[in-house]
Computed example of a mutant assay.
Amino acid sequence: MTCPAVRSIGVTPDLPTILDIYNEAVLNTTASYDYEPTNLEARLGWFDAKMEQGLPVFVAQDQGTVVGWGSYGPFRAWPGYLYTVEHSVYVAADQRGKGIGRRLLPPLIEHARAKGLHAMIAGIDADNAASLRLHEGLGFVKVAHFRQVGWKFDRWLDLVFLELLLDDGDRTPARP
Protein backbone atom coordinates (compact mmCIF):
# COMPACT_ATOMS: atom_id res chain seq x y z
CA MET A 1 0.00 0.00 0.00
CA THR A 2 1.22 3.47 -0.84
CA CYS A 3 0.98 6.31 1.65
CA PRO A 4 -2.63 7.53 1.41
CA ALA A 5 -3.14 11.06 0.15
CA VAL A 6 -5.49 13.25 2.18
CA ARG A 7 -7.63 15.85 0.49
CA SER A 8 -10.60 18.03 1.25
CA ILE A 9 -13.76 17.29 -0.68
CA GLY A 10 -16.17 19.88 -1.98
CA VAL A 11 -18.11 17.66 -4.36
CA THR A 12 -20.10 14.51 -3.78
CA PRO A 13 -18.57 11.62 -5.81
CA ASP A 14 -16.87 10.28 -2.67
CA LEU A 15 -20.12 10.08 -0.70
CA PRO A 16 -21.07 6.47 -1.58
CA THR A 17 -17.71 5.24 -0.26
CA ILE A 18 -17.91 7.51 2.79
CA LEU A 19 -21.36 6.05 3.40
CA ASP A 20 -20.08 2.47 3.04
CA ILE A 21 -17.24 3.09 5.50
CA TYR A 22 -19.61 4.65 8.04
CA ASN A 23 -22.28 1.97 7.68
CA GLU A 24 -19.73 -0.83 8.15
CA ALA A 25 -18.60 0.85 11.37
CA VAL A 26 -22.21 1.18 12.55
CA LEU A 27 -22.90 -2.51 11.94
CA ASN A 28 -19.64 -3.96 13.24
CA THR A 29 -17.93 -1.59 15.69
CA THR A 30 -18.55 0.73 18.60
CA ALA A 31 -16.93 3.65 16.78
CA SER A 32 -20.51 4.89 16.40
CA TYR A 33 -23.24 4.18 18.91
CA ASP A 34 -25.76 4.29 16.06
CA TYR A 35 -27.66 1.04 15.45
CA GLU A 36 -28.88 1.31 11.87
CA PRO A 37 -27.02 2.10 8.66
CA THR A 38 -27.97 5.32 6.95
CA ASN A 39 -28.72 5.90 3.27
CA LEU A 40 -27.20 8.01 0.53
CA GLU A 41 -29.94 10.64 0.72
CA ALA A 42 -29.22 11.22 4.42
CA ARG A 43 -25.46 11.32 3.79
CA LEU A 44 -26.01 13.86 1.02
CA GLY A 45 -27.98 16.02 3.48
CA TRP A 46 -25.12 15.65 5.98
CA PHE A 47 -22.61 16.69 3.33
CA ASP A 48 -24.67 19.66 2.15
CA ALA A 49 -25.00 20.88 5.75
CA LYS A 50 -21.22 20.61 6.21
CA MET A 51 -20.62 22.67 3.07
CA GLU A 52 -23.22 25.31 4.02
CA GLN A 53 -21.60 25.71 7.46
CA GLY A 54 -18.05 25.85 6.08
CA LEU A 55 -17.13 22.62 7.85
CA PRO A 56 -14.50 20.32 6.36
CA VAL A 57 -14.76 16.79 5.04
CA PHE A 58 -11.42 15.17 4.29
CA VAL A 59 -10.82 11.81 2.64
CA ALA A 60 -7.76 9.59 2.55
CA GLN A 61 -7.20 7.88 -0.76
CA ASP A 62 -4.98 5.00 -1.76
CA GLN A 63 -4.52 4.60 -5.50
CA GLY A 64 -7.72 6.54 -6.16
CA THR A 65 -9.86 4.64 -3.66
CA VAL A 66 -11.26 6.36 -0.57
CA VAL A 67 -10.01 4.41 2.45
CA GLY A 68 -11.05 6.78 5.24
CA TRP A 69 -12.67 10.09 6.00
CA GLY A 70 -12.88 12.71 8.72
CA SER A 71 -14.88 15.78 9.58
CA TYR A 72 -15.85 17.95 12.49
CA GLY A 73 -18.93 19.79 13.61
CA PRO A 74 -20.39 21.67 16.56
CA PHE A 75 -19.71 20.17 19.98
CA ARG A 76 -22.98 21.46 21.43
CA ALA A 77 -25.74 23.72 20.13
CA TRP A 78 -25.52 26.58 22.67
CA PRO A 79 -23.68 29.79 21.71
CA GLY A 80 -21.09 29.44 24.48
CA TYR A 81 -19.69 26.35 22.74
CA LEU A 82 -19.17 28.16 19.42
CA TYR A 83 -15.38 27.76 19.54
CA THR A 84 -15.38 24.05 20.37
CA VAL A 85 -15.87 21.26 17.83
CA GLU A 86 -16.15 17.48 17.95
CA HIS A 87 -14.58 15.45 15.19
CA SER A 88 -15.10 12.05 13.60
CA VAL A 89 -12.61 9.86 11.76
CA TYR A 90 -13.61 6.58 10.11
CA VAL A 91 -11.34 4.14 8.28
CA ALA A 92 -12.38 1.29 5.98
CA ALA A 93 -12.37 -2.05 7.79
CA ASP A 94 -9.63 -3.58 5.65
CA GLN A 95 -7.44 -0.49 6.10
CA ARG A 96 -7.50 -0.10 9.89
CA GLY A 97 -4.14 -0.18 11.65
CA LYS A 98 -2.28 1.23 8.63
CA GLY A 99 -1.89 4.82 9.85
CA ILE A 100 -4.78 6.31 7.89
CA GLY A 101 -6.34 7.90 10.97
CA ARG A 102 -2.98 9.51 11.75
CA ARG A 103 -3.03 11.03 8.25
CA LEU A 104 -6.64 12.27 8.51
CA LEU A 105 -6.60 13.92 11.91
CA PRO A 106 -3.87 16.59 11.43
CA PRO A 107 -5.67 18.31 8.52
CA LEU A 108 -8.81 18.51 10.67
CA ILE A 109 -6.81 20.06 13.50
CA GLU A 110 -5.13 22.58 11.19
CA HIS A 111 -8.45 23.50 9.57
CA ALA A 112 -9.97 24.15 13.01
CA ARG A 113 -7.00 26.29 14.04
CA ALA A 114 -7.22 28.28 10.83
CA LYS A 115 -10.90 28.99 11.57
CA GLY A 116 -9.95 30.40 14.98
CA LEU A 117 -11.48 27.58 16.98
CA HIS A 118 -10.25 26.95 20.50
CA ALA A 119 -10.86 23.28 21.36
CA MET A 120 -11.43 19.97 19.58
CA ILE A 121 -13.18 17.09 21.33
CA ALA A 122 -12.95 13.38 20.55
CA GLY A 123 -15.65 11.06 21.87
CA ILE A 124 -14.22 7.53 21.78
CA ASP A 125 -15.50 4.19 23.02
CA ALA A 126 -13.37 3.31 26.05
CA ASP A 127 -12.43 -0.08 24.55
CA ASN A 128 -11.07 1.46 21.34
CA ALA A 129 -7.43 1.38 22.41
CA ALA A 130 -6.09 2.15 18.93
CA SER A 131 -8.11 5.36 18.63
CA LEU A 132 -7.22 6.42 22.16
CA ARG A 133 -3.50 5.93 21.40
CA LEU A 134 -3.82 7.81 18.12
CA HIS A 135 -5.40 10.82 19.79
CA GLU A 136 -3.02 10.86 22.74
CA GLY A 137 -0.11 10.66 20.27
CA LEU A 138 -1.40 13.83 18.60
CA GLY A 139 -1.65 15.74 21.88
CA PHE A 140 -5.23 15.05 22.94
CA VAL A 141 -5.71 14.70 26.70
CA LYS A 142 -8.31 12.54 28.41
CA VAL A 143 -10.75 14.84 30.21
CA ALA A 144 -13.72 12.56 30.99
CA HIS A 145 -14.73 8.93 31.28
CA PHE A 146 -18.46 8.32 31.23
CA ARG A 147 -19.38 4.89 32.51
CA GLN A 148 -22.10 2.84 30.83
CA VAL A 149 -23.64 5.72 28.85
CA GLY A 150 -24.06 3.71 25.64
CA TRP A 151 -25.79 0.42 24.82
CA LYS A 152 -24.83 -1.59 21.76
CA PHE A 153 -24.21 -5.22 20.93
CA ASP A 154 -26.08 -6.28 24.10
CA ARG A 155 -23.70 -4.57 26.48
CA TRP A 156 -23.08 -1.24 28.21
CA LEU A 157 -20.39 0.96 26.73
CA ASP A 158 -18.14 3.55 28.34
CA LEU A 159 -17.39 6.77 26.48
CA VAL A 160 -14.14 8.70 26.87
CA PHE A 161 -13.77 12.36 25.96
CA LEU A 162 -10.36 13.65 24.92
CA GLU A 163 -9.60 17.30 24.25
CA LEU A 164 -7.02 19.20 22.26
CA LEU A 165 -6.66 22.91 22.91
CA LEU A 166 -5.98 24.54 19.55
CA ASP A 167 -4.50 27.78 20.84
CA ASP A 168 -2.97 29.12 24.04
CA GLY A 169 -6.22 30.72 25.22
CA ASP A 170 -4.70 34.21 25.39
CA ARG A 171 -6.98 35.76 22.81
CA THR A 172 -10.56 36.90 22.95
CA PRO A 173 -12.35 35.17 20.08
CA ALA A 174 -13.99 37.26 17.39
CA ARG A 175 -17.75 37.32 17.51
CA PRO A 176 -19.40 35.53 14.58
Results as ranks from 00 to 15, higher is better:
G10R: 11
F47V: 00
T12I: 07
G10H: 12
R147Y: 10
V11E: 09
V160R: 02
A77K: 12
S131W: 04
T2L: 13
G139M: 06
M51I: 11
G10D: 12
L159E: 06
E41M: 10
L117E: 03
A31S: 14
S88T: 15
F75V: 04
G45N: 10
L55N: 08
G45A: 14
D158R: 02
P107K: 07
G80W: 10
D62V: 15
G101A: 07
E110W: 01
Q148R: 14
Q148S: 13
S71W: 02
R171E: 14
T17L: 02
G80H: 12
I100N: 01
G137T: 06
F47Q: 00
W151F: 15
T38M: 10
G68W: 00
G68T: 04
G10M: 08
D94H: 14
D168R: 05
P79G: 09
T12K: 08
N128E: 05
Q95E: 10
P56S: 05
Q63K: 13
D168P: 01
D48R: 15
P13C: 02
Y90G: 02
E86G: 01
R155Y: 01
Y90R: 06
V149P: 00
V89K: 00
A112G: 06
K98T: 08
V26A: 09
R96F: 05
I121M: 09
G97D: 08
P106D: 05
P107D: 07
L162K: 03
M120W: 01
A60G: 03
L162Y: 08
E52R: 14
G68P: 00
D34S: 11
Y81W: 15
A31K: 04
T65I: 04
P176F: 10
W156H: 11
P79W: 05
F146K: 03
V149R: 01
L82N: 14
E110P: 05
I124Y: 03
S88N: 06
P176C: 09
P173G: 05
M1W: 12
P4I: 07
A129L: 12
L82E: 14
S88Y: 06
N128R: 07
T29W: 04
D14T: 01
I121F: 03
V85W: 06
P107T: 07
P74H: 13
Y22R: 13
S71N: 12
L157N: 07
G97H: 08
M1H: 13
V26R: 09
V66Y: 00
D34K: 10
L15V: 03
F146L: 11
P37C: 11
A122V: 05
K142E: 15
G10A: 13
T84M: 07
A174R: 14
D154W: 05
G70E: 01
G70N: 00
D48M: 12
P74S: 15
F153I: 04
G169M: 07
L166F: 01
D170C: 15
F161Y: 14
L105E: 02
L157M: 09
L82F: 15
T172S: 13
A129R: 12
P16D: 00
L40M: 11
H118R: 12
Y90Q: 03
G116K: 00
I9N: 00
E163R: 11
D94L: 08
D170I: 09
S88F: 06
V6D: 02
R102G: 07
G137A: 09
L164S: 06
